[in-house]
Design a protein around this nucleic acid. Sequence first.
DNA 1: GTTGAATATGAATTCAAA
DNA 2: TTTGAATTCATATTCAAC
Lengths: 83, 83
Amino acid sequence: MKLERHAKIIELIGKYAIETQEELAGRLNEAGFRVTQATVSRDIRELGLHKLRDDGGKYLYVSTRSRHGVNMSNKLATISPNR
Amino acid sequence: MKLERHAKIIELIGKYAIETQEELAGRLNEAGFRVTQATVSRDIRELGLHKLRDDGGKYLYVSTRSRHGVNMSNKLATISPNR
DNA sequence: GTTGAATATGAATTCAAA
DNA sequence: TTTGAATTCATATTCAAC
């Protein structure tokens, strides 16, 4: 089920430093969700997740919504160009 | 010169909706900076730029620093997982 | 230290299938 | 409507050259 998988994805990116969609697909499969990178790619878009470089230069998938349910999309807008 | 090119990149991503590094390289070349995608990739890392999906699903390069010189890296930290 | 060409890697999309 | 395999596309890196 897609909804459960989405919830699991949010959980996984909070718990682990997920660097690639393949890695996320692997974690999902370990958790019993049989999916491929193609599906993970779609899930990430639907969830509005972003891949950002951290201070160490590594890429990580992160959510734009905090644990407290606050939508951070306005903060993302803040760092967007004023166009 | 790299410094001038970096400044031009900041200007360009503020002025245009740059979707790919190839596109940015093209704009730079129009502006007289002869560079390839490989160099643009390095510049983007050095400048701390990020590629984000906007509300319409399109990808855009954005800066983490506002026009007013405020470093937004703490806001990025805010949307990062609490790890 | 900087760069480009070539390559490797990662991600989005297509297209068929269910 | 969702999915995976294959493909295309975008980006990071390697490696040589300067």
